[in-house]
Amino acid sequence: MKTLFERTQGLTDIPFHYCPGCTHGIIHRIIGEVLEELHLLENTVGVTGVGCAGFAEQYINVDFQGSAHGRAPAVATGIKRAHPELVVFTYQGDGDMVSIGLAEAVHAAARGEKITAFLVNNANYGMTGGQMAPTTLIGQKTATSPYGRQSEQSGFPLDLPVLISNLPGAAYVATVTVDTPQNVFKAKRAVRQAFKTQMDGLGFSLVQFLSTCPTNWGLTPVESIQWMQDNMFPVFRIGELKQPQ
């Protein structure tokens, strides 16, 4: 019998705890598969931030360091500078990376740190109960923007990959989605490209995943995908924003 699909060795055996319809699980699997396919499972250290994304350390089957809110790119810098032979990646949510960790993220990119950053953007702080993030859309209701985000009060959504793609130290920058099987394949290609950019020593690489948060959005999983497509896709620039020259 021919094996068509196997669970990747890039994931541990611990069942995901994520809410139904959350895309963290798909993103974990993609990263795990690429790490396995590139034979990196014994040569990689991951770094988590906090929140829901902080649990990645339980599921992705490599050495991990658990860092604090926003600090993962600094921790990853320490690891990579100590062990340039390792592949080092970070896994953060949008509240983590785009808000409190903006300095660490931008400066890691500006230094051209040879690390790979994954940003899972679901337009709110998920684990703390759905508060406004820098990525929250104009008009989007959250626990701390109960009347909808108003630009006069809270500014505008921040598309970090666009910002970072302007830095010379950033070598590969992409924003992807995992809303359809086709886009999952595209996302996986971006993950592979990001790791290869690091392995080739070309500089900082970043992949943003547009993601869902059915629990805090108050929508079903299917409605969440639709809401993401209708509302997030027009705001965050999707595609490969920067590729190695």
Binding site: G78, I79, H107
Partner: peptide
Amino acid sequence: GTFVQSESEVAAIYMVFGAAGSGERV
């Protein structure tokens, strides 16, 4: 050895964290 000037003391201590966690004297 390796020297990095960090963007802040916050970043510095977490770079120390990462290198220490990878077993190096830092």
